[in-house]
Design a protein around this nucleic acid. Structure first.
Lengths: 330, 330
DNA sequence: TGATCGAATGTTTACGTAAACATATGGAAG
DNA sequence: CTTCCATATGTTTACGTAAACATTCGATCA
């Protein structure tokens, strides 16, 4: 910076002003500085800048990895939204769902230079309330409403209701459910809403099978369900598990949707191309991400925000994997 | 840090020594400092530290987003490998494949505090050689061999050969190919190897159809292929496109694998649960990521490395989507 | 005309850390 | 007992930037 200042014949402070697009710099001076910068290939030093301003223009992102496509979509969308806002994203994937791992990730991120932290798909931890170090703004996605941080999420309750209703309306006596892992809030809310919707409709509530979001776990659950003759409709808590259920049913000789209807949750782009195309609940990951980043930046610039929860409406996408049950068909 | 030093009754330099685990600190002093740190909730300031050391313990990662599952797997694996090495990952997703976008991403990252940059699935850019700012170590994945940066990649040539051979060996007269985007090196190498393998075997080489890695583009290609009666075997350049091809074939009334065999590339976990389960080429994303990070850290610590390319061997996974052609079946 | 103000630019300083150098202390070697 | 050296600790400084404050200069207004 000193070199640039010398070459342009100004003080380093003027260079700083040009770099930061401040006013009160004569156009001609600005041009002179800019060309000096170009000539010397000058790049501002983020560390020094952050040291002075206390701002890094970077967001920390803690997730449980990208193996779950829903998570991957969220991470992707958050990254892009952050970029549009001029922030980079510092990502940490934690392996286990323990509070210790989350805290270690937090430590690493706050040590790393971030202005705020986005926590994706927070799990239900052992301790009643996850205590995070103060001072760093936090926004959660798919977390627990009772936490003291703002949260943005798809309206899981509404989504699960839509898909369960859809299956009941087709004439199925009841709907089986393959849930996500027991320590996932998103999974819990979907399961609770499925349960409530069945009760409301006066339908029997079958036992829940738990998966871990993976197609493999859906397949295992599907094998169990395929053995039970009365199963005519299955709602899997995400599209990957729905895929596994479908496979297990087909292997067992059950046709979809003639013998059994299957629905998922997420609406991955691929779900429209499965055989048969999957009925599912579309989450608007981009809108969720936009809101997360907006809330984050609010907090960074204007201080702590109330721990409100913003819900983004999902949409039922009916495709060919759901149909009336055999009893209602000619 | 000064507060910690005062509380512990030592100089700030001694605190620094404790924080950095340096030797030459008496055990008793160390404990005193550590407890002072705990008491005050002291966290080292990364910006100040980086300003002095010039190191950030952070890697930049440029990719084209996580919509392509292969990319998502790579990003996930790189993140985890980097974490194990004590580095965080600063991610940038670029929208378009222009050189300008790549350079903008580079600028943002070098301005952001990173010690090195990993470039995933570099595309073929307009200019003969992508000129990156000097001074920052770079490792490429899925890039162009001719670049002057070290590269790690799955052996695309070998993978495409394996799958093409497999189809020919089953008795298919030739194999159609749905390639990835024309500006992708990985897609190009897979296509070239498919072409070479057909020629070697004396088989006719049908025209290539291009997709963009998405299931939708595979579906479009599949519709075209389904109209051609002679098509008995299709090799799609990734599993997502293979999924789309499968869907188009099934819609057209072609059975898989009885009428037409379909194979993919990547071996996503889901591919084993498609109907029918997909024959594909398994990429070892974890090994690729390990090597990328190792090369990166070598460069950071020991200076520029030769622009070698390391290939990781793929593996053919035969499942039920491929079979002998109708002509060879009873 | 002189006072006043605002725009453009310069000077000084602080940010929090680790490197480089300086000093003190105690024990081993002669 | 002195010398020397290793170990433990303290002091000074530099890293590159932006904030705070200071200065200069020309224009505006009473």
């Amino acid at each position: 910076m000193a070199d640039v200042a010398a070459l342009a014949g100004v003080s380093s402070q003027t260079v700083s002003r040009v770099v930061n697009n401040r006013s009160n710099v004569e156009e001609e001076t600005r041009q002179r500085v800019l060309s000096a910068m170009r000539m010397l290939g000058y790049r501002p030093n983020t560390a020094a800048r952050a040291l002075v301003t206390g701002q890094f223009r970077a967001l920390g992102l803690i997730s449980f990895g990208l193996a779950s496509f829903g998570n991957a979509r969220t991470v992707d969308a958050v990254t892009r939204a952050a970029q549009r806002a001029g922030y980079t994203v510092n990502m940490i994937a934690i392996e286990s769902q323990t509070e210790r791992a989350v805290h270690a990730a937090f430590d690493q991120l706050t040590m790393q230079a971030v202005d705020g932290i986005v926590l994706i798909e927070a799990q239900i931890l052992d301790t009643p309330a996850l205590r995070l170090p103060p001072g760093v703004p936090v926004v959660m996605a798919d977390g627990d409403v009772s936490h003291r941080h703002p949260m943005v999420d798809t309206d899981q309750t509404q989504g699960a209701r839509l898909v369960t209703r859809h299956l009941l309306d087709l004439g199925h006596e009841t709907v089986w459910h393959v849930a996500g892992p027991e320590d996932s809030y998103a999974a819990k809310r979907r399961a609770e809403s499925w349960h409530a919707t069945l009760k409301e409709a006066g339908a029997a509530v079958p036992g829940v099978l738990f998966g871990d979001w993976s197609a493999a776990s859906g397949y295992e659950a599907g094998r169990v369900l395929a053995r039970r003759p009365g199963v005519t409709a299955v709602f899997a808590a995400n599209d990957q598990m729905a895929l596994g259920v479908m496979r297990a049913m087909i292997e067992a000789g059950r046709r979809i949707p003639e013998d059994v209807s299957i629905a998922g949750f997420d609406d991955l782009e691929e779900s429209a191309y499965l055989s048969p195309p999957l009925t599912t609940v579309r989450q608007d990951f981009d809108v969720v991400a936009e809101r997360i980043v907006a809330l984050m930046i609010d907090q960074i610039e204007a201080g702590p925000a109330p721990a409100d929860t913003a819900y983004v409406a999902p949409e039922l996408i009916v495709r060919q994997s759901t149909a009336p049950p055999p009893s209602r068909r000619p």
